[in-house]
Design a protein around this nucleic acid. Sequence first.
DNA 1: AACGGCGATGTTACCGGTAATATCAAGGAG
DNA 2: CTCCTTGATATTACCGGTAACATCGCCGTT
Lengths: 361, 361
Amino acid sequence: MAEQAIPTSGTAERDAGPIRARKHRGATSGASRPATIYDVAAAAGVSHQTVSRYLKGFEGIRPETRAKVERALADLEYRPNLTARSLTTGRSRRIGALTHDIDKYGPSKLLGAASAAARDAGYVLDIVTLDTGDTASITQALAMIAEHDVEGILALSSTDEMTSAFERIDFRVPALIATELDEPVRVESQLATVGMPALVRHLSSLGHRTILHLAGPSQWSAARNRTRALASATAEDGLTIVRTIEGDWSAASGYAAIKVLADLDATAIVSANDQMALGAMLALGERGLSVPGDVSVTGIDDIPDAAFFCPPLTTLRMDLNGSGRDAVRELISRIDGSEAHDPRAVQSELIVRRSTGPAPR
Amino acid sequence: MAEQAIPTSGTAERDAGPIRARKHRGATSGASRPATIYDVAAAAGVSHQTVSRYLKGFEGIRPETRAKVERALADLEYRPNLTARSLTTGRSRRIGALTHDIDKYGPSKLLGAASAAARDAGYVLDIVTLDTGDTASITQALAMIAEHDVEGILALSSTDEMTSAFERIDFRVPALIATELDEPVRVESQLATVGMPALVRHLSSLGHRTILHLAGPSQWSAARNRTRALASATAEDGLTIVRTIEGDWSAASGYAAIKVLADLDATAIVSANDQMALGAMLALGERGLSVPGDVSVTGIDDIPDAAFFCPPLTTLRMDLNGSGRDAVRELISRIDGSEAHDPRAVQSELIVRRSTGPAPR
DNA sequence: AACGGCGATGTTACCGGTAATATCAAGGAG
DNA sequence: CTCCTTGATATTACCGGTAACATCGCCGTT
């Protein structure tokens, strides 16, 4: 109440100093614009630089000065203006996230994990979604992100178009595509229960020798990765992939793949994700084939619904939370110039449910 | 090549003028920092203000001046710095989005639609996710968003905690919770095929009179909205809700609800979303009840997988894309101070599949 | 007692834009 | 022919911070 913008006494004049005048801010709080460090400095009777130093955590401030600043900060409900800070420091504490298919399980799970990891590190994610996966739309989205002054760029959909855009464009900031590692790392002590080898061994131990592979779209690196892992694991265990059909991750594509097939030729279907497995199981039912009596079916991801499919789906649980988090941490460490963490393979774990059973004779 | 930061001749001095000196930028392009309007102005031999005016689309610029500016802009690959612009204008072109359960279908679908609508209007979404829905975590997230200088705030999860946080906090910017409208609007011409009344009429016409209601968590406004719509529609058609069990949207909760039930007492189960319906159907199967032979089951949302459940699920397709888009448009119109659109009810459409059939005698 | 060093604080410049004001040349009126 | 007006452009101030440098008072030294 006593404080005014225009000095009316010698004391006030000395306190305020010849600092840049603020035109507004009558009372200490209210509907006026948020307080700046200049307002705080004036209220505390110090220079704005002292306030800035305090906020930065600078030690060498006398206790009484410190107390005045703290008091003023609290009185004025000061909140730093990140825009102004980022203009001088170049640090915006923002990461651009690029994604399409955000309503699909994988990308949205990754996004959630990435966002949580970013928040914990004091960053927010600027998200830009793509309607289509074509190069033009990716380029345009990247331009949009770039204008918004992000410190790093994270892509949550790892397709060939995305990869090529990332290789072609000079971002001036660290950029990263969150993806499953191309070469799965073997965790020696858990080899038998981890990942695709475990899945294949499970099928093999049930007597299956012939596999129909429902693959993901080949321009996705995750799809290629899964296909490669399956090929390598089946080769090792002596199983045969009698047929590979490429879907688009959707249940509809899994359904269509099985529906149009003249002959199944296999006792097990290994799908690159749970949704396609779901579609496949429905189509099998409509052909009069029972799961797992006639055909065993497996998925990948372990989406929450998979445990309630009919029958509940045997699948590989992917640690997408972990990979989203790791991707952001890796990106932030590149931003900060600190040492990168070791890139870790996505952890996966075999979840056996009722969709797999002994191979029919 | 000929241009240098330090004037070495009268000509250069006149061209550059007594403007703030730039220390860097030797060649016109390369690994140096991005060009500013001052660089462009120097290259074009005009003042930075002329460049600014050009960028703003100001008309009164002489054609030859305009040409010089355009040339310089292209040569230097100028990209505006949104941070600097937003510091003076107060327009950041950012909307803060607050959400949890982003890996669930509803929120992620809303987010995708919101992001697309924002992008089309030149905004990006700053997303902050919540681990938990409690008030403290919401408050903290909102503080984080506020620092990041957004022009509006959009919540994508409409729970009581969110609502109360929104009422308690003064954001200084428009804030909006994306939610289904509390009072469904009736589209007269389509009354019979739209929304909950259509769903109930469908069950009624199949001879069902008793309904078990699998409700969503009551702190979600969408859950309350759906429950209310069901109550009103059943009352109108003379059906009885014999029991209401509250789940948490997950298939697991739908499964558990039916699993522990001593007696079903109803010929139809109306679930507040598709996932709980999925869980319920599995539990029904395990009790030896067939769908739809013994019990009919319906969901809400029409998630992409619902058409491939076993059996495929009769459900209400919700236009979440539309509501996400509308929420952002509404928010942006409030930001711009323009007239708000009419709030529209979420459009929903009855999708009849095989999970509903004639009531058993 | 004069002085150098140093810790605490104040002053100025700068980030990259936009807004407001100033300048300047050309054209029209008196 | 001079003055005023006006359109085009230049200059300056400002947004809210941070960084670099300047200042000032107090201390111990010789």
